[in-house]
Write a protein that binds this DNA or RNA. Structure first.
Lengths: 192, 192
DNA sequence: GGTTGCATGTAAATGGTTACATGATTGT
DNA sequence: ACAATCATGTAACCATTTACATGCAACC
């Protein structure tokens, strides 16, 4: 999903400035499945504006810098529709965390424990914040996606809680076995 | 996680060619949380080789093109360790699928149903294939990560199964309400 | 005869992030 | 005094994808 489409999506829910779009990705309703930096949002809005997919009006504010508020046009909604009606690609999680746990046996146990505990704490924080949202007033699609995200985070928490101790025990055992001859570094055959 | 580190990770489990690394990301043990194209793998291996993090030897094969098999060096293992022992960033899911479901009310119901059903079928396929793996012989970290992936996919399937009908009903109702005056296109205020 | 799998590589184009540049206001 | 929040924008840099280029073997 490119940043232009993301902007159109945010703007389809109401007018916003570049700064507000960034916030929607950081803390708002898109925060758990999208993100974009200012360096991509502002050029995207400029392009969208040049293509007449959004309108832009300046807004002076007291005690705040001026903002440029963008408004999606009819052509913009059509472009959003076109982007939405293509079969979504198979999600790539591309997780550094998964990559790290995969190689747990190469990592010092204390570090591993720390990372895992922080991850649980962070997920719990995310879930807590998500539960505070009043979804009742929101459209069905947003409620559905919110619930899907919650289900995902809860499953992750449950699994981590249930398996962290076992993992750390096994890693500790494996590492104390390996240490003397450094056997963990021996080459093995790859197998799918 | 950059492609160089990914290559080092794969090679830490045993020697492999560029082609085999690609397969490990597509079908192998990394398939559900990493991916990389040939256009990134081959240059990465060349760089790694130049930096002496991997060794390379040519292998002639009968009835197959020659391959270049790479082997991780001691310096390579050290580099992998260094990359592993940094706190992993908060995963960005960046899902086109989530983005689409979020805007479900803008999408034709038949298309939506189709996408959701395909998604469930695909996840079920992934889970089935994952369950076929014999994890018992694999290191603790790999088993843990495999279980985490399974938990994630299963939670997603459960949620989708339990909520698809309700979502489609609500979307159908909302769209037939909206159609006469095209009210779905009215601008609303953004709210977190 | 066409597609798939095996096998390696390059170059152009894409799409982003990071860092920089600026500046007022509010809170600690 | 210092950091954070609000606010916009540019430019250099980066990694990666896509498309191209090549070629043989096996299968349908």
């Amino acid at each position: 999903m490119d940043v232009k489409t993301l902007c159109l999506g945010v703007l389809s829910r109401g007018d916003a400035s570049g700064y507000e779009i960034k916030k929607a990705c950081e803390e708002g309703p898109f925060s758990h499945f999208q993100d974009a930096s200012f360096g991509s949002i502002y050029p995207a809005l400029a392009k969208l504006s040049a293509d007449k997919l959004v309108d832009c009006y300046q807004m002076s504010q007291e005690k705040r810098p001026d903002k440029k508020v963008y408004s999606i046009t009819k052509a913009g909604r059509a472009a959003l529709f076109d982007a939405l009606v293509v079969p979504p690609s198979h999600d790539k999680v591309n997780s550094d965390f998964y990559f790290m746990t995969f190689f747990a046996q190469l990592i010092p146990v204390e570090f591993l424990r720390d990372v895992l505990e922080r991850r649980i704490a962070w997920y719990e924080d995310v879930v807590a914040r998500m539960q505070e949202c009043d979804m009742a007033v929101r459209p069905a699609g947003e409620r559905f996606t919110h619930g899907l995200g919650l289900a995902h985070y809860r499953a992750e928490i449950t699994y981590l809680r249930e398996n962290i101790d076992q993992l750390l025990l096994e890693i500790e055992a494996a590492q104390s076995d390996d240490a003397p001859q450094d056997r963990s570094l021996l080459s093995q055959t790859v197998s799918a």
